[in-house]
Design a protein around this nucleic acid. Sequence first.
RNA 1: GCGCCCGUAGCUCAGUGGAUAGAGCGCUGCCCUCCGGAGGCAGAAGUCGGGGGUUCGAAUCCCUCCGGGCGCGCCA
Length: 602
Amino acid sequence: MRQILDSLLRDALRSLEDSEGWTGLAGTSPELERSRDPRHGDFTSNVAMRVAKRYGRKPREFAAALKDRLAASELIESVEVAGPGFVNLRLSAEAIHGEVRRMLGEGESYGKSDAGQGRRVLVEYVSSNPTGPLHIGHGRNAAQGASLANLLRATGHAVNEEYYVNDAGRQIDILAASVWLRYVETLGNELPFPRNAYQGGYVSNIAARVVERHGAALCGDVAAVAEVFGPAAGGEQEGLAGDDAANADSSHDPDADARIDRLIAAIRGSAGDDSFQTVVDAALDEVLADIRDDLEAFSVRFDRWFSERSLTGGGAVDRALKTLEANGHLYEKDGATWFRSSALGDDKDRVVVRENGATTYLASDIAYHLDKYERGYDVMLNVLGSDHHGYVARLKAAVEALTGHGERLEVQFVQFVVLYRGNVKAQMSTRAGEFVTLRQLREEVGNDAARFIYVSRSNDQHLDFDLELAKSQSSDNPVYYVQYAHARIASMLRRMADNGLSRPDAGGVKLGALEEPEERSLMVALGRFPEVVELAADKRAPHHVVHYVRGIAAEFHAWYNAHRILVDDDDVRDARVTLALAVGCVIRNALGLVGVSAPESM
RNA sequence: GCGCCCGUAGCUCAGUGGAUAGAGCGCUGCCCUCCGGAGGCAGAAGUCGGGGGUUCGAAUCCCUCCGGGCGCGCCA
């Protein structure tokens, strides 16, 4: 719809350029927008105000000239020059009715476009460390990423979704050490449990599985390991901390770090590398299976789970580093190998190979992004928690250094989620051990409410998630409000069938029977859907879809309340039912984009 | 200290450089002989954090100050 009007305006501009000799005019974008105020028509263009001066005309004069050139399209009912020089267009009934027919004809495809022209996009999201269950913050990332992927697909991009599994590195060793400690504990050998080990109950569950499967075979010499804790080591806990302690311990304590590294080394030494690896694998398997199930239940599915280990093991990291080195981006200092990222926009240079010879997380990530690039993606879109924003400059520098296409890396940040129960903050507190997992949230409020609320705010806005509101089955709850509109339509259709009324044929129905102002306004609003989808995809902002569909539901409820649909007059009834069907179609498609169901009844 | 994000109605938030800044909740007062009241209508409520600037036009862009969040590891 918008595109057709847009091209009409462009034609008019070209015609003005030809006849008036106003060179360059044809290349001007008309900037056609939806009018906010219905008194300003349906669409409005500000082109006159922007360019009139260039051709020595007053904006209103220019607008009047433009108005005269606008072809007498059957889509336009009237053109008006208003205010300081706006050109306002009012859609004809033909245009509006044609759009409604299109909705019903296209059905679930309505709203899709080929704007992306098949450009290949890889959306990487969640990518949470497999060291524990997903929490509510990951939930927002998941909802955001999955919705973005849907939006990009709907706008003609070739999309793949990926979860990068950080299954190598120190955090995993710490997880394995944590499991091992619980494991020997289960077998009756209590050792101190370091504060910066993983505290969560799931660690003990994994340990229990290890006991089932391997008995005491992985213990090694527990007494030897105990020496790490020093002579004072007893059976007491070293301290209390939350589930996420290893990450949450923000004032990172070098002593504690060193101690846990010694612990890992001691376990490896006494139980053997193979045994340790068995624990690592068991821990990863359990945690990843849990994450996978959790996301699956949340309607979040990845095309690929990309293992970091596959990069280190497969030589990809070495290859990426060699390429960087060959191009002069690496240097040695203090026994480590550094990437000169500061030459490409980063604050400072970054270590890629540590003094001890181990590659860093960044080195793996560089290799991963090189791999993405080589797979031919035009856009590498990463959805990250906002606490990772400091990381982007170095990664972008690396992509630029390796490929010369740093601009292909795009990062969307998702701000934090704060949970409320009514007015009371229910935020997880690592100290108190109140750890709210995504699973707990889903079980409490349901998947639909969670997905909807997660993407209801702009992603760079903190999200206050009210559990009571999300659970409430009232109009206060935006999810139910929208779903109710859909269910109401389905219910009306059931009643029709009960009364022996057949559904109108979208082609033959007389939409001219829709004479109420609310009906015109609703039809026009429905016709905006494809533009909303494009906007949301373009801006990487799924919340536009949520706000839009709420508005549609509100207009529908108002209309439904004011006017009876199943009236005796066949023409009016058929027309109204058709409109209701169109509303249902748009609500369904909109909810589908953000992963929320559109129920027939509630 | 430096960098990124955010300050819009009492609260939670929309707002693609445009015309009189919008929703929802809450508050006030209304509407069921009626297709699902899980609904609707009406009203009150704002110096768009402050101050400069760019522009025909700024909540939107630039500068600066004041609040709040996050980040500044040979962690991931």
